[in-house]
Amino acid sequence: MKTHALIVTGYGINAQDELREAFEIAGAHGEIEHIQNVIEKPELLLKADYLGFPGGFSFGDHLGSGRVLANLLLLKLRPLLETFIEQGGLVIGICNGFQTLVKSGLLPRCGNNLGSPADQARNRYETEIAMTPEVSLIHNIQGTFLDTWVPVEFPENSRCVWTKGLAPRLLPIRHGEGRFVADDAVLDALERAGQVAVRYRDNPNGSMRDIAGICDSTGRVFGLMPHPEASIHAEVHPDRRRNQENLLGIDIFINAVAYKETGLKSCREV
């Protein structure tokens, strides 16, 4: 039986098709649904194994990238998302999807371990009613959008189930607001806890500590600025003529599907 990926779309999200394609190539069944449909029919999410937030320009990135979509998640889907994650669901947010996860506080969720009184005070209101944003993604340091392929690596100590054991490779980036920022305390905590999942080798946007992607403390919720879903076929790789075998972004999805399928198998065995 194939595992099942739910990919949301709507409001300016635009990279849903390739994200579904990535899940399908990796061996899962992929389905695209308008967020409005998920709000109306929570079972769409509850029956899924993976939830994908694709790239795009949700709400035009006005008020900050991912900001308004994050509001929508918090207002309409928060309990559902929490249930999904608690029950072992895998979440990936790519580019605008990553921005959305970060702005909604779904990533990195290391807050309770931080303990800094200043942070506590700052987020007093949000901790009460919403997840707490701890990090942010802001305008690239050069101030402009950038489309290129960059070398990235996957820290070995990361607890991220999506990136486990992957070798460094080129991945495409396409963003104007990808500069990862946080307080030093948060950055330290992320590194300590193995929540840094992807790093740039040649920092293209001014991200602190070269961070390109992070996961939550479960390792199952993962967000990154590069687009692994745009590197699933060898013929779109920029080095297609130079190397016979280029490493592709598809491996991230293969990892996730393997993780889920192994989990399912063990469940069934039990």
Binding site: N14, A15, D17, E18, E21, G55, T144, F145, L146, D147, T148, W149, P172, R174, H227, E229, A230, S231, I232, H233, E235, V236, P238, R240, R242
Partner: peptide, 22 residues
Amino acid sequence: IRQYDHEVQARTVEKPFTGIER
């Protein structure tokens, strides 16, 4: 030109720039 997204939809084979350093 790199400020244009030329790869969304993930089907762009020949991109505006090519070569070892693209």
